[in-house]
Design a protein around this nucleic acid. Structure first.
Lengths: 144, 144
DNA sequence: AAGAAATTGAAAACGATTTTCAGAAACTAG
DNA sequence: CTAGTTTCTGAAAATCGTTTTCAATTTCTT
């Protein structure tokens, strides 16, 4: 896992310490389905590591976001979600409002158009979010 | 104001009552700059209507959203914002992360591409959000 | 192995939002 | 137009997710 190395480097760089909790949380985070909330990861971890507290999970996820191995997302359900960042590629999301399914996609043409919109308004884009909400194939088929 | 009529119809339809507070809040909401949070609208109203409580403002904004004359927005600053919905046209936002400036834009080509992405994943889009975060011209010019 | 510094977990604090509740106002119906 | 029913209001309290506090513990020097 390259992410583990990255995280350890970040810890050193910042004068932070490498603790067993942080390693456990990092591994669980990388291994898990993405788009986890603090709550979800905390509950998942509790099975094997009942001693790890909610605050530690939360602080560690924030650390991941800080050092760039996680991205914070907010899909409007009132919870902040975190997903592992693997490479450089940006992606956006399709979200099923019925079953909660989240699909990631990339569409370079949309990114290009965003740049031209920004340019027209003399804006410099630092980042963006694009989320498409609706029904996935299964839910659309299923009554409604 | 057509919005006023719409709102009154909605109230009747739902067996809700038309109160003076609701009318005052609706007028202030429609007249104001858009993208107001509950807090902001509440403070603004307090000047002329010191008796109107925060809870009432909040409940009324939710009502607006319910009946379609307002849209809820969340730009990641931890506050829910509401903007008047005037017609059918959808728009997206450019947000300056330095000064908070919000610019609205429309880009039909992006919408089209979204549809094709959704189709590729057998998704039915109900709505979407696209937000471009960065620096406006003034803030970009201004040091950083 | 000892000391300085950072981390942990539990609980408390926080900020935004939502709910509660008793009194007030709005809409029936008579 | 008045009584009765229902909804609404405002203040305060409750809630929810998130963040901070603090004493005890652990990590990482040296």
């Amino acid at each position: 896992m390259d992410q583990v190395k990255l995280f350890n480097e970040y810890l050193n760089q910042q004068g932070l310490k490498n603790t067993s909790q942080r390693m456990v949380i990092l591994e669980a985070f990388l291994a898990s389905d993405s788009h986890l909330s603090t709550e979800e990861l905390y509950l998942q971890l509790r099975a094997d590591h009942p001693k790890i507290g909610y605050a530690t999970v939360h602080r560690t996820l924030k650390l991941f976001a800080e050092c760039g191995i996680a991205a914070e997302r907010n899909f409007g359900d009132g919870q902040t979600r975190f997903e592992p960042v693997h490479g450089e590629e940006h992606h956006d999301h399709l979200i099923c409002t019925k079953c909660g399914l989240i699909i990631e996609f990339e569409e370079p043409q949309i990114e290009k158009l965003q740049e031209s919109v920004a340019a027209a308004h003399h804006f410099t884009i630092k980042n963006h979010r694009l989320e498409l909400y609706g029904l996935c194939a299964a839910c659309a088929a299923d009554g409604q």
